[in-house]
Simulated assay, not measured.
Amino acid sequence: MGLRRKKHWGGQAAGPGREGSAWAVELRGVRRQYGRGDRAVHALRGIDLALPRGSFTAVMGPSGSGKSTFLQCAAGLDRPTEGTVRLGGTDITGMSENKLTALRRTRLGFVFQAFNLLPSLTVEQNVLLPMRLAGHRPDRRKAADVLARVGLGDKGRRRPGQLSGGQQQRVAIARALVTDPDVVFADEPTGALDTTTAAEVLGLLRGAVDTMGATVVMVTHDPNAAAYADRTLFLADGAIVDRLERAPAARIAERLTALTAPAPAAAYTEAAAA
């Protein structure tokens, strides 16, 4: 899985990318508009962001702030109206759908609230699915390794329906990590779990960053989940308006509550914070 990579903030290199980039995720001037004229919806209003490899970032904001659109554009699931997106040093903005699909299968991992496991496949087969879809020979030893890392080394032959919700999310995490992706995108990964199980899953994501050099970008509404991250970014009206570094849940909750206050938040940029 690779050794832990040293992390840096403030623009210093965090390790070589597949194309020489220190950044796992870069969004430059990203805007996303739906519709035109008076009915236009500006979901993203100029996102400038660079996240280093080997980091854990949480993204929060009020309903309608642009969190889902941010995740979709960053992961190549949606195309920005303006701006560029780079993943692991690769500019994906103008990629064809075929190339984007291939990139997502080999260089990105996804963890969703609903697990999205195939019930007819075994746990091992679910974990190996990204390799199969990419046309690569399934590596059963790799699957066994990641399943052991998430505490399911003895569950490879079971079906998802035979596992608890927390165990199914562990399988989803193993599936996301099996290709050593540039980035793991997690969308409300603990939304369907109880508090204790959620903490276990978040601990696994934190461990993937700390011990495997993974990069995690997680959208969440839960300050307790965001507290596991290295930084929390706050979105409002399609813009990044604030961030906190290694903050406790109470402080994150306080900042999130402030975003719902009537007073408009000033636009925040990474450059202004440097």
Results as ranks from 00 to 15, higher is better:
183 V>T: 11
119 P>Y: 13
128 L>V: 11
186 A>T: 11
74 A>I: 07
81 T>S: 14
131 M>K: 06
58 A>F: 11
163 L>I: 11
90 T>V: 14
226 A>G: 06
89 G>K: 09
242 D>S: 13
159 R>E: 08
152 L>H: 05
27 L>S: 13
200 E>W: 06
10 G>F: 05
226 A>R: 01
214 A>I: 05
247 A>Y: 12
249 A>G: 10
226 A>H: 01
16 P>F: 06
169 Q>W: 10
205 L>H: 05
31 R>V: 08
84 T>I: 04
260 T>K: 12
86 R>M: 10
205 L>A: 09
155 K>S: 14
22 A>T: 13
203 G>T: 12
162 Q>H: 13
13 A>M: 08
53 R>H: 03
43 A>K: 02
221 H>D: 09
105 R>G: 02
243 R>N: 03
183 V>S: 01
268 Y>A: 06
170 R>L: 07
108 L>W: 00
159 R>I: 03
102 A>L: 12
258 A>L: 08
218 M>E: 14
247 A>I: 10
122 T>N: 13
13 A>H: 03
202 L>H: 03
212 M>T: 01
96 S>N: 02
73 C>E: 04
26 E>M: 07
68 S>H: 12
139 D>I: 07
251 R>I: 08
141 R>K: 15
236 A>P: 00
110 F>Y: 07
31 R>F: 13
240 I>K: 06
271 A>Q: 10
5 R>I: 05
170 R>T: 10
274 A>Q: 13
170 R>S: 03
38 D>H: 08
85 V>G: 11
158 R>Y: 12
111 V>K: 09
164 S>G: 05
172 A>H: 07
45 R>S: 13
53 R>Y: 01
125 Q>P: 04
251 R>A: 14
218 M>K: 12
141 R>F: 05
208 A>W: 07
2 G>M: 09
38 D>M: 06
113 Q>E: 14
267 A>R: 15
215 T>H: 05
189 P>Q: 09
63 S>H: 11
228 Y>F: 15
245 E>S: 09
105 R>K: 10
86 R>A: 08
60 M>I: 04
17 G>R: 09
95 M>K: 10
65 S>A: 15
3 L>C: 02
263 A>L: 12
48 D>P: 00
100 L>G: 02
121 L>P: 00
48 D>F: 00
142 K>R: 15
262 P>C: 04
210 D>M: 04
138 P>T: 08
45 R>P: 01
166 G>N: 10
215 T>D: 04
100 L>R: 14
61 G>Q: 11
98 N>P: 02
91 D>I: 07
5 R>G: 04
135 G>T: 14
121 L>T: 04
93 T>S: 13
215 T>N: 05
40 A>E: 13
31 R>T: 08
132 R>G: 05
115 F>N: 00
141 R>C: 06
179 T>Y: 01
77 L>W: 05
175 R>C: 09
57 T>I: 14
178 V>E: 02
99 K>D: 15
20 G>M: 11
231 R>Q: 15
1 M>P: 01
28 R>H: 08
38 D>Y: 00
216 V>Q: 00
138 P>M: 06
264 P>C: 01
24 A>N: 08
33 Q>H: 05
156 G>Y: 01
169 Q>A: 06
25 V>P: 00
76 G>M: 08
16 P>Q: 06
242 D>A: 15
64 G>N: 11
72 Q>P: 02
49 L>F: 00
190 T>Q: 12
98 N>Y: 10
255 R>D: 10
